[in-house]
Design a protein around this nucleic acid. Structure first.
Lengths: 205, 205
DNA sequence: GTGTTTACCGAACATTCGGTCAGTTAAACA
DNA sequence: TGTTTAACTGACCGAATGTTCGGTAAACAC
């Protein structure tokens, strides 16, 4: 599942007796953040969703902003891995671009709530600005990929690479706004439709 | 400019003596909402941006939520006009779809701050839920357009119309996240690139 | 000059915010 | 069995929230 970034794995993984732990608090918190927005969510909202009082949350995590920071890191780590993969570095740029698009859709759906949160960050705190900085690096990375593909003559003439980058990954990011794994097509199918629409064209040849 | 939805135009348009009016408060407020997020913006933030105290704002507008409501209506009205145009109702569906995409980009850029706000609404209040309902109608409208185009055989086989709708207008909506009219390509150029990328395909034929 | 309107300030309001802390409960361990 | 300790409660804190209200000074109408 690739979602287990478990903060601290006990050497014996003894069965937790009950109640919550940092991981369960995080996953519930991120779900509520995505429903109401981070700023629109109070610790009281989180407590209600967890079935405990506000103060119980502070037994598991340091505070609201740390919950956000951990969630954003989880999204950014997934995307960074992808960008560091050798399949994003070897071969014709247009093929690498296609691979990155497909993998981005995969990571986005695998870590949907975390990536959704990342895509909505506005920069209101140091935590958010740090996440935006990491995100900007990733955007620059794909920007270069499109430029390379254009330089290699693989992209339809007259299309500005910077514009293509934004529109293409704008479409990728928009998936976070509607995709529900239990209801919608599998991630690979969504990625396939996106690639065909943007690489080969919507219009019947 | 098409942005003047002036709430109340004085019959003589006498030169406002000084200070703010509902219109100037709204435009500043929307700018701050987009910077910090609606929930992340306090009335104190707005007051600072306007150069007045908090209480002065209430002389011009009824409150924070009304500012949001007015802004969202401004976005929704622009998009509704577009959907009601006869050019969205006559001719081959694929051509109507292309027209709607181009016009959506036009409205989005003309009313950028208002549409940006609309695209970020989460449904936290009755005001927001009402806006989401109107937005859903518009989305259903373009959904039908894509279905028609598919039924007319104008769309590449194997592409699910519902998926195409979401990805296509996801790309349109993403423009709101980066487009700065003074820095970026004109709206028509952006629309052109988007249509070419998605209708004809990114990849060189 | 008088009276009215417009734009605004400053102080307060009730409420909610994120967060703290001293205790209580009960399961796990020795 | 007794001790430890993780999980949690309830009362509370100071600060910030959106909003109200009485007053004020400048611009306008007459």
């Amino acid at each position: 599942m690739a979602l287990d970034v478990s903060a601290s794995s006990d050497r014996s993984t003894r069965p937790r007796r009950r109640g919550h732990d940092p991981e369960s608090v995080l996953s519930v918190a991120v779900a509520v953040f995505n429903e109401r927005g981070y700023d629109g969510t109070s610790m009281e909202d989180l407590a209600r969703a967890l079935g405990v009082t506000k103060s119980a949350i502070y037994h598991h995590v340091p505070g609201k902003e740390q919950l956000l920071a951990r969630a954003l890191d989880r999204a950014l780590d997934g995307l960074s891995e992808l960008a560091a993969d050798e399949r994003a570095a070897r071969g014709p740029a247009i093929d690498r671009l296609e691979w990155v698009v497909r993998q981005s859709v995969r990571v986005l759906t695998e870590r949907l709530p975390y990536v959704t949160l990342l895509l909505r960050v506005r920069g209101n705190s140091a935590t958010e600005r740090a996440a935006l900085a990491r995100r900007a690096e990733l955007e620059a990375f794909v920007g270069h990929l499109v430029e390379e593909a254009a330089a290699e003559g693989a992209i339809r003439p007259g299309l500005d690479p910077a514009l293509v980058t934004r529109l293409l990954f704008g479409a990728v990011g928009s998936i976070a706004e509607w995709h529900r794994p239990e209801r919608d097509a599998p991630a690979a199918d969504v990625a396939d439709a996106l690639v065909r629409m943007t690489f080969d064209g919507l219009r019947r040849a």
